[in-house]
């Protein structure tokens, strides 16, 4: 019987790495859902200059009296996106921090779909990693990393045009006319216990 170091190690081993096949879906692949943003740093600077820096000076002022119409609460944003057939169609830009820690991925999983299915024009902009800190500053305090800015007379038109120019539109080809997608198989790397022979 071999007494090499590798053979001894294998005797001691309790678990073995295994690869399990799992079915993914092209419909819920988050990488395809988030629209690409060109020059994320520039977009962040624009956001800082036009929205965030203004909001810093509005501590203690009621939200209704702000010179900008913004929404930071998740439920409020979902309600705005889901309001179908309202008196006014929603025209807004939604800034999201999908790559930052402290934001559960399950929370943001349906955000691109919600934007797409909303009746108005919603531009979804993903911010670079580390931008959640900026949105957490008072008085905005975007706990969930979502900031919806209404595009109305109060907001600078150049800012809206620049952000929309640098962001790709949302694309969900499977929602418009579905075409069969190939089976998206993946391997899940995990471990399984080694079965020892009973003596």
């Amino acid at each position: 019987m071999s007494s090499s170091l590798r053979a001894i190690e294998k005797k001691v081993a309790l678990r073995k790495q295994v690869y399990k096949t799992v079915l993914g879906s092209p419909f819920v692949n988050e990488a395809h859902m988030w629209p690409r943003v060109q020059d994320q740093a520039v977009v962040l600077e624009l956001l800082k200059g036009t929205v965030l820096n203004k909001c810093v000076h509005l501590q203690g002022v009621e939200r209704g009296q702000w010179p900008l119409d913004v929404a930071t609460d998740y439920n409020e944003i979902v309600k705005l996106l889901g309001a179908a057939g309202g008196p006014q169609e929603l025209d807004a830009i939604l800034f999201v921090c999908p790559r930052d820690s402290g934001i559960p991925p399950v929370l943001l999983q349906q955000v691109p779909l919600m934007c797409y299915t909303s009746r108005g024009t919603v531009t979804l902009v993903q911010l670079p990693q580390g931008s959640h800190k900026l949105l957490l500053a008072e008085p905005l305090y975007c706990k969930e990393g979502l900031l919806l800015v209404h595009c109305n007379d109060k907001l600078d038109g150049k800012f809206v045009a620049a952000v929309r120019d640098k962001t790709d539109p949302l694309r969900f080809p499977w929602l418009d006319g579905i075409a069969y997608q190939r089976t998206d198989l993946k391997l899940l790397k995990t471990t399984a216990p080694l079965k020892r022979k009973q003596k």
Binding site: K20, T21, V22, L23, G24, S25, F27, V28, N29, E30, Y74, N75, V78, L81, G82, A84, V106, L107, Q109, Q110, L113, M114, T117, S118, E144, K186, L188
Partner: peptide
């Protein structure tokens, strides 16, 4: 097995596909 991201889009009770603003609503 299905990936959790796929399973999350299916209702366990009525087996509907959960699409926001169509067959499902989300809130905190």
């Amino acid at each position: 097995s299905l990936l959790p991201q796929v399973k999350r889009t299916i209702c366990k009770k009525c087996h509907s596909i959960l699409i926001p603003n169509k067959t499902a609503s989300t809130k905190i």
